[in-house]
Each structure stands twice: as structure tokens, then as C-alpha cells.
Design a protein around this nucleic acid. Structure first.
Lengths: 163, 163
DNA sequence: GCGCGATATTTTAAGTGTCAAGTTTCTACC
DNA sequence: GGTAGAAACTTGACACTTAAAATATCGCGC
């Protein structure tokens, strides 16, 4: 099958109106978010000697004074249960969170921020917000709101067209 | 791949002019690319029993009939040198690539696709393109080209404002 | 020829991520 | 009240990722 024939075949199969453009868009989207994420990870490491998953766990706990169970944490971060176990264990070693068994259901353990954890998180969150603001500072308000709309359309398209 | 939970603290930060908007934009960008990436990873696993990093290595090699060195590979994929070593080792076990020392500089090893690797990659690449096209099929051509422009502006802003 | 810094790569240690299997505890039904 | 199955969580095996240390080789100056 020649290249041209293959392309024709593929386009008929997928009903693909703008195939190559989609791929280019995806690569550009991925590249942007990877660059930003890398910067955030690097700054978290440099300034706070911590990692993005740790930061995310602290963020989830910060708005729940009564704590979260392991399962609630894994649901909030969209990661597996076993993954949360490891991250929380390391946060406990650093005295940033505590895990207590205070429910009458003894299978459940509740994780909550310590005072040290809350203070550390607040410092990180302030810095985090400034990094992001700085990275997007080259955009106009109009560009930002257009992007918000278009990305909402992207998410809608993804959800309407499950692969 | 942590991200969805970064959203948790966005509401309570006051500060720079369009600061909250930047954060929201970042979370939306991250959320879109994470959803797409997860789908691609899941499909690669289901249909081809492979992973995204493996696919990326094969893609990089497919464009270079003469092969790439380990350093060229790590530069192409923007990952560390040691990372490439492990991925290539597993691809070699699966007979999808070969590593030969054919330069007069004996430090350098050249990695290239085998016939099996090339054929496997071409099947995957066709499927990959269809998945992406399907996911973006809810967008108009105009929305796609606007997004391309705006994401180019994002990348420009990031590069002009190093954190 | 010798030595020394630079370059290419691998190895190592630690963290993150998945899934599957195992453990403990609870619940519901007989 | 005993037991089967569900639920919460941990553990284990494997893959990916990084930074840093280790290894091997090269090239250059003397």
C-alpha cells in the first residue's frame, strides 16, 4: 500500500476531517503543559526540597480541616490507592501530616495536616501562584479568556468522543 | 502525573492582577493534556501492550533510518540519559530495536529500528493518529487554528518569562 | 608516551505511578 | 452466631523518571 493510498484509507476509516492538524495541536498542547510542569517541579525541588505529588496531597488536605481518608485522597488526586500510601508515608516521615485511626471503622485511617504541614504548604502555595502568574504574564486578559473557552471546548470534545 | 488536586487551593489566593485567572488557565491546560495522555497510554497498553515512552522512542527512531545515539535520543525526547538506557534495553529485549557500536568512537552506540520495530511502530502510529483525531473531532478547523496560535503565544510567554 | 579534562554511557538511589494480590475489618444474610 | 463477601488499605512487582556517581573512551598538550 503506497503512502497516498494509506492516507486515503486512514481518512476514510476515521472519518478524519483534519487529521494532521489534530496531531500538531496535540503535540503543541502537550509541549506547553510539559514545559510548565517541569518548571514547577524544578522550583518545588529547588526552593522547598519537595515534589509535585507531595504538594498536591498537601493542597488536598489544606482545605479539609477534618482530614481525608486514603481513599478520598486517591480519588481527589486521581491516582491509585497504593500510590497514595507511599506519598503519605513520606509526608509522615517529614512530620507534615499525621495518620490517625479515629473512626469506629478500624479499616479507615484519616490523614490530616500538622501545623508544620499547613505552614509549609502555605509558603509553597504562595510561591507556586507567583511562578504561574509569571509564566503567563506575556498573555493579555483577552488571550487568557479565549484560551479558557477553547480549552473548555477541547475538554468537551474529548468527553464527547471517548476513544 | 499529579495535577487535578492543584485546583484545591485556587479559590483562596488573592494577589496579582490576573493571578487567579493564570492559575485557572494552568489547571485547565493541565487537565486537558492529562486526560488525553491517559487515554493514549491506556490505548497503547490495551491494543499494543506497550507504553508511551516506548512509543516515543520508536517514533524518534522511525524518522532516522541511520539511527540515533543514546544522547541524541535523550535530547530528542527531552528526558535524561539514564532514562533512555532503560527504555532502549527493554525495546531490545522485545527485538524492536538494535544497538550497535559501529562508530570509530567506541563510547558511542547507535540505536536503530529493526524490521519488526518499524512494522510495529507503523501500526501504532496509525492507531495513535486516529485516537487523537477522534478526540479533537468536536472542534472546528477555526477553533484548532486559534488554539495553535494561542498555544504558540503561551509557549512564547513561558520562554520570555523564565521562573 | 603520559596525563588530564571532556564526552558518552551506564549504574545507583530515591520517588512516582500502575495493577494485582494479600490483610484486616466490617456487614449482611442465613 | 457463623460465615461469605465487600471494603479500606498495604504490599510487591514492574516501569518510568531524575540527579549524581561511576565507567569507559577520546583528544589534546607536553
Amino acid at each position: 500500500m503506497s503512502g497516498a493510498a494509506t492516507r486515503t484509507f486512514v481518512e476514510k476509516l476515521g472519518g478524519a476531517p483534519h487529521s494532521k492538524e489534530s496531531l500538531r495541536l496535540w503535540l503543541r498542547l502537550l509541549s506547553c503543559s510539559m514545559i510548565i510542569e517541569r518548571r514547577i517541579r524544578a522550583r518545588l525541588e529547588e526552593e522547598f526540597s519537595t515534589t509535585l505529588p507531595r504538594f498536591d496531597v498537601l493542597a488536598a488536605l489544606e482545605r479539609e480541616p477534618d482530614g481525608l481518608t486514603m481513599s478520598q485522597l486517591s480519588a481527589a488526586l486521581l491516582v491509585s490507592n497504593g500510590n497514595i500510601t507511599g506519598i503519605v508515608n513520606r509526608l509522615i516521615e517529614d512530620l507534615l501530616v499525621v495518620r490517625t485511626a479515629e473512626s469506629d471503622d478500624r479499616r479507615i485511617s484519616t490523614v490530616r495536616l500538622t501545623r508544620k504541614g499547613r505552614e509549609a504548604f502555605q509558603r509553597m502555595a504562595r510561591a507556586h501562584e507567583q511562578w504561574i502568574d509569571r509564566m503567563f504574564s506575556g498573555l493579555t486578559d483577552n488571550q487568557i479568556s479565549q484560551l479558557m473557552k477553547l480549552l473548555a471546548a477541547v475538554r468537551h470534545s474529548i468527553e464527547e468522543n471517548p476513544v
